[in-house]
Design a binder for these strands. Structure first.
Length: 553
RNA sequence: UGCCCGAUAGUAUAAUGGUAGUACGACAGAUUUUGGUUCUGUUUGUCUUGGUUCGAAUCCAGGUCGGGCAACCA
């Protein structure tokens, strides 16, 4: 029984349209510019656009808004396609605004013939000064009243490559005194002698966003063109162009982009982090990019769940990253295979366990999913436990090992700490313990009650692994809201590389596997991992109730 | 100074003139061979001032606050 979820404002609009018969089915599109990698904010838009046509009759296209050849690359196209697929969505058509360059050019000619566009020879400085300000009207350019014939001639020559970059532009002729700055004769075509990733050198004039996006929507019969709030003022121009061109009227709807604290979601800023080597690349596991999250170990399910939970609205927002972490923990708790890995080890010698002997102990692969079965762990006289799991002078409510105390070793025996061995510097280097042979997991008849259970590995068979522990990329909630450059607020401790000692079964790890290192967190193999030098990424820690308890004091 | 968008617990999001809910977080407790998971409980909210109405988070008016608008970017 599916839970009733209330409709977001877009679903309400669509249901109304469907009920009224305005549309039989809907068409949406996800329209990235291939000038960077997709991030978690885009995931929200992807889930929205594709989710809508999963819920209602219709389909969603993937359309690349590739109208600015100087910033766009095929590498980005490929990464975007890969990310959308990975998130679990299928587009109906793979489309490019550049597919419409011929049509768009014809539309421009039409506008000129209608007396609604003109070629302007002004420099960008001149145009800016004539544009006015939000409170003062602009003034007309001296080229504004050129004849249709002259405009046609100049525009064709622009297309033919007769003029250098920036020499002339084509502008829509609307109203230089318009209250909406975007309606003050916006530039619709500019000259760029640049190689385009798809059309090559065919064109040296390229349409601006406003002259490409709405028309592309129209050509594709998009019914609901969903974008973010910063495009609200563009809607007037969007509608104006469609109406003057007398083409299919698609409609634009805006929602607030999703912001997440302790990170940035702006392709421009993410590009800077990559270019200036603050991170190792677009897929650095600390990046909020889809590829970064993927490498970090996030699952598509968890990201979709997150997007659903944060919802869609029109107000400014700053989503707490703890919700993202909740979503991935919830999913990983169900699917991750449990492993025991000791990070900062201290040796434990079980003095009453026979020397040179050992045994295999069975443990569950995932207590949340019995179908994953059990595996064997090797146990012997010498094991490794976490240094943190021993304290010589423990505080109250410390459930772990301390002189004289008893703990259970997970899936093994209860041990008692008898002796603390120190070096000359007074540091604890080894613990001597005794075990209770009748306390074996599953057949415990010792009657001993312990409060703590520790993870451990067999000293002689543990294998070393590298583990990369990630923390938030920035030290402040909103780096873009702080004084100075946002990069000053990078968290210097966002990456820590540590060594761990893992149970031998870890050798069979596959790239797709998700692990829970018991009592530590969730991990996955990094792309740089090698068979003889395993590297793990920490996706997210487990919730740590003890750390919380300690913070209180 | 103009125009546009918005304002509900710490965060996000519902309630569409009729009991202000849900999730995350926080806090407390129960269970637990992971201080995990699970379960239970608690806490905190309608920006403000008026108006309409039997009744307003919702409708109206004024104000306040936040965001956006002057790229040959998208």
């Amino acid at each position: 029984m599916a839970e009733e979820r209330s409709l977001n404002f877009l679903e309400e609009i669509i249901e109304k349209h469907l009920e009224e018969g305005k549309y039989q089915h809907i068409v949406t599109r996800f329209p990235p510019e291939p000038n960077g990698y997709l991030h978690i904010g885009h995931a929200s838009s992807i889930c929205l656009n594709f989710g809508l046509t999963k819920k209602y009759p219709g389909y969603t296209n993937l359309r690349f808004d590739d109208t600015n050849p100087v910033t766009e690359e095929t590498e980005y196209v490929e990464s975007i396609k890969n990310d959308v697929k990975w998130l679990g969505f299928e587009w109906k058509h793979e489309l490019y605004a550049s597919d419409y360059f011929d049509t768009l050019y014809e539309y421009a000619i039409k506008l000129i013939n209608l007396g609604l566009a003109y070629v302007d020879d002004s420099t960008s400085e001149e145009m800016a000064s004539l544009k006015g300000t939000p409170t003062e009207p602009g003034k007309p350019s001296k080229y504004r009243d050129r004849s249709i014939e002259e405009n046609l001639d100049l525009f064709v020559r622009m297309k033919n490559g007769e003029f250098p970059d920036g020499a002339r532009v084509l502008r829509a002729k609307i109203d230089m005194a318009h209250i909406n700055m975007l309606m003050r004769d916006p530039i619709i075509y500019r000259i760029k002698h640049a190689h385009h990733h798809r059309t090559g050198d065919k064109w040296c004039i390229y349409p601006m966003y406003d002259f490409a996006h709405g028309q592309s929507d129209s050509i594709e019969n998009v019914t609901h063109s969903i974008c973010t709030l910063e495009f609200v003022p563009h809607r007037e121009l969007y509608d104006w162009l469609i109406e003057k061109l007398e083409i299919y009227h698609s409609h634009q709807y805006e929602f607030a982009r999703r912001n997440i604290n302790y990170t940035v979601t702006s392709k421009r800023k993410l590009l800077q982090l990559v270019n200036e080597n603050h991170v190792s690349g677009w897929d650095d596991p600390r990046m909020p990019t889809i590829s970064g999250l993927r490498r970090r170990g996030y699952t598509p399910d968890s990201i979709r769940d997150f997007c659903e939970r944060i919802g869609i609205a029109k107000r400014e927002n700053m989503i707490d990253v703890s919700l993202l972490e909740f979503c991935i923990r919830e999913h990983l708790n169900k699917i991750a295979l449990r492993k025991m890995v000791v990070f900062d080890p201290i040796k434990v010698v079980i003095t009453n366990y026979p020397e040179g002997e050992g045994e295999l102990l069975s443990t569950e692969n995932n207590p949340e999913d019995p179908s994953t079965g059990h595996r064997d762990l090797q146990f012997s006289r010498e094991i490794l436990i976490e240094k943190d799991d021993f304290m010589e002078n423990p505080p109250k409510k410390y459930f772990r090992l301390s002189p004289g105390s008893k703990v259970r070793l997970k899936s093994a025996y209860i041990i008692q700490c008898d002796e603390v061995v120190k070096n000359e510097a007074g540091e604890v280097v080894e613990l001597h313990c005794s075990y209770f042979a009748n306390s074996k997991s599953g057949e415990d008849v010792s009657g001993i009650k312990v409060q703590g259970t520790l993870h451990w590995v067999n000293a002689s068979s543990a294998i070393p692994v590298e583990v990369r522990e990630y923390d938030r990329l920035f030290r402040v909630e909103d780096p873009t809201d702080e004084a100075g450059d946002f990069k000053e607020y990078l968290n210097p401790d966002s990456l820590k590389v540590v060594k761990g000692y893992a149970e031998p079964s870890i050798k069979h790890a596959n790239a797709a596997d998700r692990f829970q290192f018991l009592r530590k967190g969730y991990y996955c193999l990094d792309t740089e991992s090698k068979e003889d030098a395993l590297v793990f990424n920490r996706t997210v820690t487990l919730k740590d109730g003890w750390a919380k308890e300690q913070k209180k004091n």
